[in-house]
């Protein structure tokens, strides 16, 4: 598995940002570092040739979530922090660290991106069908959009209605009647 220097440094940046989000005592600092984490992930997705996912991560993770969290701490009390770093609870660190190590172990079993042993190719009759016939059958060249809106349209319908339900649920929770 060959990785470039850019990918390694981005991965290190993402891991450091994730640790920073967990240990910074100031909530505002944690939110800013979390936004940096999302942006790093978005660039990583782009390098892994998944621009649709990268765009979602940049817009939702780095943009919308950050602003919603900032608005939330503006509405609540932001504790003035004396120390820079949260008091570390070592037993929790051991548990979380062990879990991370076990999950990270599986990374070495992954096939290289783009190799014919990758999981995406484990059912070539399906993947090849989408890649070969997307334009013939749906008239669009972005196979991701074709799968989302045409081949798996009903799933996407469910997702879109879930987002609508989220808006209604927030109205119910906040005891409000209109979207302002």
């Amino acid at each position: 598995m060959s990785v470039s220097l850019v990918e390694v440094s981005l991965a290190a940046f993402v891991i450091l940002a994730a640790i920073g989000t967990a240990i910074f005592r100031d909530v505002m600092a944690a939110i800013v570092v979390f936004a940096a984490y999302s942006l790093g992930m978005a660039v990583l997705y782009t390098l892994m040739l998944a621009p649709d996912v990268a765009m979602t991560e940049a817009a939702i993770g780095a943009g919308v979530t950050t602003i919603l969290l900032i608005v939330t701490i503006a509405k609540t009390n932001r504790s003035s922090a004396e120390e820079l770093i949260e008091v570390i609870h070592w037993p929790a660190v051991v548990v979380a660290g062990t879990f991370t190590a076990v999950v990270a172990w599986t990374v070495f079993e992954f096939p290289t991106i783009g190799s014919d042993e990758a999981i995406a190719w484990s059912n070539p009759s399906v993947t090849q069908h989408y890649l070969t016939y997307t334009y013939v059958e749906t008239g669009v060249t972005n196979a991701v959009t074709a799968v989302l809106a045409a081949y798996r349209g009903f799933d996407t319908f469910g997702e879109a209605v879930v987002v609508f339900a989220v808006g209604v649920a927030v109205l119910v929770v906040l005891d409000r009647e209109v979207f302002t």
């Binding site: 608005v71 879109a160 987002v163 409000r176 009647e177 209109v178 979207f179 302002t180």
Partner: peptide, 27 residues
């Protein structure tokens, strides 16, 4: 469909969060 739902709900989220609990602003 999708773009309209997402744009409407995501816009509303920031106003709802900033407004906080209670019906008084909503009226």
């Amino acid at each position: 469909g999708i773009a309209a739902i997402i744009a409407g709900v995501v816009m509303a989220l920031v106003f709802l969060t900033a407004g906080g609990y209670g019906p008084e602003r909503g009226e």
